[in-house]
Design a protein around this nucleic acid. Structure first.
Length: 561
RNA sequence: UGGGGAGUAGUUCAAUUGGCGGAACGCCUGGCUCUGGACCAGGAUGAUGGGGGUUCAAGUCCUCCCUCCCCAGCCA
């Protein structure tokens, strides 16, 4: 709702609803989120869900969840289940208003008979190829089917026999009798029913004829009392047909369709076909691979529902095609997690540090805030001793300008602990640094110096003795190009895959409190990013996914060179 | 060459319906800070796709043009 302080700017659909309410055209707003159960929901659906459910809630109405299951050859129960889970996770509820287009098959069949009796529908024997041929072209009118003028009786008889399974698949269709020379191709006697023998996930083998989307959608809306039927732009030129069915059937309260531009994201594909290809070709581990733009993927990656909802609100609703920068989505996540995520310390690429002036065999406990910005998150105890790990990236033997981290003879602050000065380092035969020697200033315990000096930078660390090992998966964009479909002749979007979209780090060192991490919790690993436990975790080895990095000024400086 | 849509900072959207074109993100400065994070302050960026017209006044109304997107599934 709009009361959270941030003013959200309006959009044309909200204005239409407002006006309809004010001027009494509708008493109550009823929307619906319609979806075909033939794939997992993705971030584009999240935008539609935010509009459909969000607007209904805002105006005190309701939003139905409806499965558009009119094509049994592509639909599966697995998808129905995942879709419901994802919508709930996003924070929306439909209460008792769960519907399936297949619930209306009987009514739709009756209405088809009604149209036949009105002389507005006919059974056509043309093959699929012939129908296409007769349809004409964009600039050419079509031709009328030779079966267009069958008598009502004959149509009734034939349609019933279609339903009874007397004809083979594809041999006949029921078509609306509208106008074969209509400038809008959708109006050229569109198919209402096709013969299709496939087991439906809900109605089983009861039917062998199935209504098309065009014949089912508006009527489903009408049956449910939908007032505002919101969909994407590509249905704009189906609206006259939507209205035609609603107008020519005995329907009192007519629903109305409104269209908005679907979401596009840089470095991302959002078509079910392409996402399915990524899954089927094994390019990703499944629909919930954390690199997938699916709701399930984002969830596993460590995104929160709030972040996704805020993003969907922020991108707005308009009719102009647009592509949102992926960085904007990431920023919405950071914004959310910065407030909510408890802080922890984790070293992804460990480098051992021996603190020469810390007594061997001794240790102490430091009390550390779980979220410096919100004391209500409490504190935790972390051990400190002679041997710790820091991140390899936080040390350089020969640091370039603007590198403020640890280097020989340089002093940095260890987060929540002591000031540390590097006194030396050891290398292996390849002159790779394998260990650092240093000394701490005992007077700086807690991270403050009595003399007021302050190191330029603070680095994180974990205690060597009791830290836990884990695997950390670093995710990056799945595609190299902003527009993955920008390809050379003869190639497809798969040629733009980012080979480094997943980097697996092993032997990462985490502070011990992280062994209690639970699925669904997201932590900020200080100075690194936001991470969440992955379902692949085992007791011996936890697995964490990086949801998003923190903003990194040093990385930016490096990139500029 | 048919029909349906859309053009406003780099991006995504606003503009009280004809009244001095704004916000968010991004970008650049500076400040602050025990996260090179967060936060704070400041800054740059637009002939509102183009021409013509109406008007005291046009992103908004009229007109001509340009560019982009969608449509020829028995998919949704």
């Amino acid at each position: 709702m709009a009361e959270e302080g941030v003013k959200k700017s309006s959009n044309f659909i909200r204005e239409i609803i407002k006006k309809d309410l004010e001027e009494g055209r509708v008493k109550e707003v009823v929307t619906r989120f319609p979806t075909e159960p033939n794939g997992y929901l993705h971030i584009g659906h999240a935008k539609a869900i935010t509009i459909d459910f969000g607007l209904a809630k805002e105006f005190g109405g309701r939003c139905h969840l409806r499965f558009d299951d009119t094509n049994p050859s592509k639909e599966e129960q697995e998808y129905v289940d995942s879709i419901m889970e994802d919508i709930r996770w996003l924070g929306w509820e439909w209460g008792s208003h769960l519907y399936f287009a297949s619930d209306y098959f009987e009514k739709l069949y009756e209405w088809a008979i009604y149209l036949i009796k009105q002389g507005k529908a006919f059974v056509c024997d043309l093959s699929a190829d012939e129908v296409r041929e007769y349809r004409g072209a964009l600039t050419q009118p079509g031709k009328e089917s030779p079966f267009r003028n069958r008598s009502v009786e004959e149509n009734l008889n034939l349609f019933e026999r279609m339903k009874n399974g007397e004809f083979p698949d594809g041999s006949k269709t029921l078509r609306a009798k509208i106008n074969m020379s209509h400038p809008n191709i959708n109006m050229r006697d569109p198919v209402m029913y096709r013969i299709l023998r496939a087991t439906h996930h809900r109605t089983g083998d009861k039917w062998c004829i199935y209504p098309t989307y065009d014949y089912a959608h508006g009527q489903s809306d009408a049956i449910e009392g939908i007032t505002h039927s919101i969909c994407t732009l590509e249905f704009e030129d189906h609206r006259p047909l939507y209205d035609w069915f609603v107008d020519n059937l005995p329907i009192e309260k007519k629903p109305h369709q409104y269209e908005f531009a679907r979401l596009n994201l840089t470095y991302t594909v959002l078509s079910k076909r392409k996402l399915l290809a990524l899954v089927q070709k094994g390019i990703v581990s499944g629909w919930d691979d954390p690199r997938m733009p699916t709701i399930a993927g984002f969830r596993r990656r460590g995104f929160t529902p709030e972040a996704i909802r805020n993003f969907c609100e922020a991108v707005g609703v308009a009719k102009a095609n647009s592509t949102v920068d992926l960085a904007f989505l990431e920023e919405c996540l950071r914004d959310e997690l910065n407030k909510k995520a408890p802080r922890r310390m984790a070293v992804l690429k460990p480098l051992k540090v021996t603190i020469e002036n810390y007594p061997e065999g001794e240790s102490e406990e430091l009390e550390i805030s779980n979220n410096p910005e919100d004391p209500s998150y409490g504190t935790r105890k972390v051990k400190f001793s002679r041997s710790i790990y820091i991140d390899r990236d936080d040390f350089m033997v020969d640091p370039p300008p603007k590198f403020f981290r640890l280097a020989p003879q340089r002093e940095v602050r260890l987060r929540n602990a002591y000031y540390l000065t590097c006194t030396g380092y050891k290398t292996d035969e390849k002159s790779e640094v394998i260990e650092i020697m240093g000394k701490i200033d005992p007077a700086t315990k807690g991270g403050w110096s009595p003399d007021g000096r302050s190191p330029k930078v603070t680095i994180h660390w974990v205690n060597a003795e009791d830290c836990i090992e884990s695997e950390i998966r670093l995710y990056d964009r799945l595609f190299l190009k902003e527009n993955p479909d920008d390809v050379e002749e003869g190639k497809d979007f798969l040629s733009n895959l980012n080979p480094d979209s997943l980097k697996v780090l092993k032997g990462c060192k985490l502070e011990p409190s992280l062994k209690d991490a639970k699925l669904g919790e997201v932590y900020q690993f200080e100075r690194v990013g936001y991470f969440t436990l992955d379902k692949d975790s085992k007791k011996e080895c936890l697995v964490f996914n990086r949801a998003v990095t923190l903003k990194d000024t040093w990385a930016k400086i490096q990139k500029k060179r």
